[in-house]
């Protein structure tokens, strides 16, 4: 039931100090929550419970209220980004060329869903809108590497490169 990230929190003292500075900057303005969440995500890359609790205490906003906002907007993430960020394009061209099957195969191999990160922090998975490489459809990317004209059978070999 719980939606906490299984990846252990690795926030540093410096990050926390930066977060508290950001909160102090916005605390007295109207509607401080959105800018604080956006900057917090910029600092940590995601918004785990540890970060949301600090925001809750400092802004005196209930934790559930913050979580409700975080899960309402697609821009916020509850899971950290992995060392290797996998993105599968679900734009129209890629989708009709079977990127849905590619995505399912990736999920099967690394054992996480879209928006999640593997517990060892190695992979995170995203489904994107059109990334403008329709000529190569279906397309996936791993960090800055682009893989095009994929078939399901290619997936395992590509991922193997990053498994170390």
């Amino acid at each position: 039931m719980s939606n906490k990230s299984p990846v252990p929190f690795r926030g540093t003292k410096e990050q926390e100090q930066k977060l508290r500075e950001v909160i102090a900057q916005h605390k007295d303005q109207d509607g401080p929550l959105m800018p604080v969440l956006q900057e917090a995500q910029a600092i940590y890359g995601y918004l785990p419970i540890e970060v949301q609790k600090i925001i809750s205490e400092e802004l005196d906003i209930p934790l559930e209220h913050i979580y409700g906002v975080v899960t309402f907007y697609a821009q916020f993430s509850l899971a950290p980004k992995g060392q290797y960020k996998i993105a599968v394009c679900l734009g129209t061209a890629c989708y009709v060329k079977g990127s849905g099957d590619i995505l399912n195969k990736i999920k099967e191999i690394i054992g996480i869903d879209v928006g999640e990160c593997t517990p060892d922090g190695r992979f995170s998975l995203e489904a994107t809108r059109c990334i403008g490489a329709c000529g190569l459809a279906p397309v996936m990317t791993v960090n800055d590497e682009v893989y095009g004209r994929l078939v399901v059978g290619d997936v395992a070999d590509i991922l193997k490169k990053y498994m170390g």
Binding site: N3, K4, I49, P62, L63, E64, H65, Y67, G68, T71
Partner: peptide, 28 residues
């Protein structure tokens, strides 16, 4: 929970068809 009791441990999570009432991080 929020206005009368100032407890605020339940609220609306997610959006659209997935919207549901729950606690932070969908904990019990």
């Amino acid at each position: 929970c929020e206005k009368t009791q100032a407890v605020s441990v339940i609220g609306a999570n997610e959006r659209g068809f997935a919207t549901h009432i729950g606690s932070a991080f969908d904990d019990g």
